[in-house]
Simulated assay, not measured.
Amino acid sequence: MEGEFTTSDGTKLYKKAWKPESGHISAVLIFLHGFSDHINAYYDFFPTLSSSSFNIAVYGFDQRGWGRSVRKPSECGLTGPTTLVLSDIHDFVHHVASLPETQGKPLFLMGHSMGGGEALCYMLSTSPAFSNRPPIRGLLLEAPYIELDPSEQPSSLVVSAGKLAAMILPHNQMKQKLSATYMSHSAKVRQDWIDDPLCHDTGTLEGLKGLLQRSGDMSALSHGRKVHGLTNKLPCSVWVAHGTSDRVVSPAAAQRLFEVLEAPEGDKVFHPYPDAYHKLHAEPDGVGEQFAKDVASWILAHTAESQGAAQVGT
């Protein structure tokens, strides 16, 4: 089911939902996609979660500047600053939480790559703007962007110049192409990402500055430093998954941040996938399928309706 939702500033963004055919919803998952990606590029992941095996309803949206939320070339990468990115997420969380079919259902938030970093910023933010955030039972992160792999990391000179340019020409567009090599072990998945016109690799200077700043903040937290406006204390349980051979973003940085995150009753899990690449949901040879089962199992184990389903695939 697809359509649009309206943000607090009146912008209409593309949304899509994958709901259990039976109509019985055991849990609700809100998903945030990655950089140069969109919600319809996650293959069988969402249909698997919403299947009769798990009955998890999945809701996602193409973020401002990405996917089908872009209606003209000048909007590519036009995400706005971090305050707007997080405001859009907050609006969507409230939108999903207010739907008739989600009432009384446990709510989970998940993000992949850039979306993982955004989900962390949203959940760790101390801003009064998010004090009315709906209760979220758990946070799931797939290869979250804490730091880029050293091979992808821009130099400090480039970063400094970019920040300066962003102050002068915030909406100026810039290609920021990531290598497809370590996206997935599947040649088809790598080629799909290259060929997909909605994966446009275009950011604005303002958007890229915000992306780097969020990453810098998460990296600082991972080293035990205090960051204004952020805490290391999560209001919910957390599950982090990372391919050990990911060379798009750094597994070591994600592990380092995981170690300093505090969750209620210490309920946090770091799940490494040996030799896997960046798109765990699209890894071949059964890895993607197992990843989906692991996600579903963790979610169901944190609902009142687990009834043993959390053991599926373990």
Results as ranks from 00 to 15, higher is better:
residue 128 P to W: 10
residue 130 F to S: 02
residue 132 N to F: 09
residue 133 R to H: 06
residue 134 P to F: 10
residue 135 P to N: 13
residue 135 P to F: 14
residue 136 I to D: 01
residue 137 R to D: 00
residue 138 G to K: 01
residue 142 E to G: 12
residue 143 A to V: 06
residue 145 Y to L: 14
residue 145 Y to K: 05
residue 148 L to Y: 12
residue 148 L to R: 11
residue 148 L to N: 12
residue 151 S to D: 10
residue 152 E to N: 14
residue 152 E to H: 15
residue 152 E to M: 12
residue 153 Q to G: 02
residue 154 P to H: 06
residue 155 S to H: 02
residue 156 S to Y: 14
residue 157 L to T: 14
residue 158 V to K: 15
residue 159 V to C: 05
residue 160 S to N: 11
residue 160 S to G: 10
residue 161 A to Q: 13
residue 161 A to L: 15
residue 161 A to W: 14
residue 163 K to E: 01
residue 163 K to F: 12
residue 164 L to R: 14
residue 164 L to D: 01
residue 166 A to C: 08
residue 166 A to S: 15
residue 167 M to G: 13
residue 168 I to S: 05
residue 170 P to C: 06
residue 170 P to D: 02
residue 173 Q to P: 06
residue 173 Q to V: 11
residue 174 M to A: 12
residue 176 Q to Y: 15
residue 179 S to T: 13
residue 179 S to E: 06
residue 179 S to D: 09
residue 181 T to G: 08
residue 183 M to I: 13
residue 183 M to F: 15
residue 184 S to W: 07
residue 184 S to P: 05
residue 184 S to T: 07
residue 184 S to D: 05
residue 185 H to Y: 04
residue 186 S to N: 09
residue 187 A to P: 08
residue 188 K to T: 13
residue 188 K to C: 04
residue 189 V to I: 15
residue 189 V to N: 07
residue 189 V to R: 15
residue 190 R to M: 05
residue 191 Q to E: 12
residue 192 D to G: 04
residue 192 D to T: 13
residue 192 D to H: 15
residue 193 W to E: 05
residue 193 W to K: 11
residue 198 L to W: 07
residue 198 L to C: 05
residue 199 C to W: 03
residue 204 T to M: 08
residue 205 L to R: 15
residue 207 G to A: 07
residue 208 L to F: 15
residue 210 G to F: 04
residue 210 G to Q: 00
residue 211 L to V: 13
residue 213 Q to N: 11
residue 215 S to E: 00
residue 215 S to P: 00
residue 216 G to W: 04
residue 216 G to S: 03
residue 219 S to H: 12
residue 219 S to C: 07
residue 223 H to D: 08
residue 224 G to F: 06
residue 225 R to E: 12
residue 227 V to Y: 03
residue 227 V to H: 01
residue 227 V to S: 03
residue 228 H to N: 10
residue 228 H to C: 05
residue 230 L to F: 13
residue 230 L to N: 04
residue 230 L to P: 02
residue 233 K to S: 11
residue 233 K to R: 15
residue 234 L to I: 12
residue 234 L to G: 08
residue 235 P to F: 08
residue 235 P to D: 11
residue 237 S to C: 10
residue 239 W to S: 07
residue 241 A to D: 00
residue 243 G to E: 06
residue 243 G to W: 13
residue 244 T to I: 08
residue 244 T to N: 08
residue 247 R to Q: 13
residue 247 R to A: 06
residue 249 V to D: 02
residue 250 S to V: 04
residue 251 P to W: 06
residue 252 A to M: 09
residue 254 A to H: 02
residue 254 A to V: 02
residue 255 Q to N: 10
residue 255 Q to F: 12
residue 257 L to T: 02
residue 258 F to D: 00
residue 260 V to P: 01
residue 262 E to H: 13
